[in-house]
């Protein structure tokens, strides 16, 4: 409870500080809109040329795209401390400043940044999700709503975990950490399309290591009434929990990395 209060307090302060430069804030928010709008336009053009992708119709594709955008940019917006500044924090020695304060390290990192500019990306995602629902003619039930919320939430936790890998590598002073982007940004690009179009190695990567297929594609295909891989319905409820599981594994690695950091310094 106390931690939630601290998080909200920090967010309020950080947003206030960003609004000190209103023009820049506005332009950057607009740039985010153009960026995600561009991605969506690419999808529209693809649909215009190809009509469908395997068993998935246009509406289904919008749904996948929208669900991924909402999940990813919600994380980028509220988890910016982890998705954005974390590696820099390690390299600049800012972690020391955090360690001399009586709060959890991850709590403080999470409280160190927010990115309200992503609101436009989330809006694009919501729009796509809405179009997807309309075109796919979904028969909504309470359970479907629940699965959607669960999938998005667990997806957010998964993405937070994946972004932490880069910081962990930085603590162990690994130099080139760009390849982690393949999991995070690559995961976003790849998994905004349904998983069954990819060759086996990629499918395994996004089911076992960075399980977007489980947090996003299984729930989505349950909602669209087109079960992925022919798995049973309850799988759509259980599978998203793999997101938090991966997060916990990476968090354990982070704890270990912090011990390493504290024994070696920066």
């Amino acid at each position: 409870m106390d931690t939630a209060k601290l998080y909200l307090h920090s967010m309020g302060m950080l947003i206030k500080s960003q609004l000190q430069y209103p023009v820049s804030f506005f332009l950057q928010t607009l740039a985010q809109l153009v960026m995600e709008g561009g991605e969506m336009m690419a999808l529209i053009l693809v649909i215009d040329r190809f009509d469908r992708l395997g068993q998935w119709e246009a509406g289904n594709l919008f749904f996948f795209f929208g669900m991924m955008a909402v999940t990813f940019y919600l994380t980028e917006c509220f988890g910016r401390g982890i998705t954005g500044n974390f590696p820099y924090l390690v390299r600049s020695g800012g972690l020391d400043t955090i360690l001399v304060r009586p709060r959890g390290v991850l709590t403080q990192v999470l409280c160190s940044a927010v990115d309200p500019r992503r609101i436009t990306c989330i809006a694009v995602g919501v729009t796509a999700l809405f179009i997807g629902c309309r075109l796919s003619v979904i028969r909504w039930t309470f359970l479907k709503g629940l699965v959607l919320a669960e999938g998005i939430l667990c997806g957010c936790v998964l993405i937070l975990g994946l972004f932490m890998i880069e910081a962990i590598l930085c603590i162990h002073s690994v130099k080139s950490v760009e390849f982690v982007n393949a999991l995070t940004y690559g995961g976003r690009s790849a998994c905004q399309y349904p998983m069954d179009i990819y060759p086996r190695p990629l499918r395994i990567l996004f089911t076992v290591i960075a399980p977007f297929a489980l947090t996003l594609h299984l729930p989505a295909s349950y909602i669209l009434d087109k079960p992925l891989y022919g798995w049973p319905a309850w799988a759509a409820f259980a599978a998203p929990l793999s997101g938090p599981v991966v997060f916990l594994i990476i968090y354990a690695c982070f704890r270990k990395a912090m011990r390493f950091y504290r024994s070696t310094g920066s």
Partner: peptide
């Protein structure tokens, strides 16, 4: 050093895009 990571990442993106276009071509 950064270059190697960059190359791997870029290739990965390439593979993803190619998988997508191959699947699209398979449908139409």
């Amino acid at each position: 050093g950064a270059m190697l990571g960059g190359i791997l990442c870029q290739m990965f993106f390439g593979l993803i895009l190619i998988s997508l276009y191959r699947a699209l071509y398979a449908s139409k």
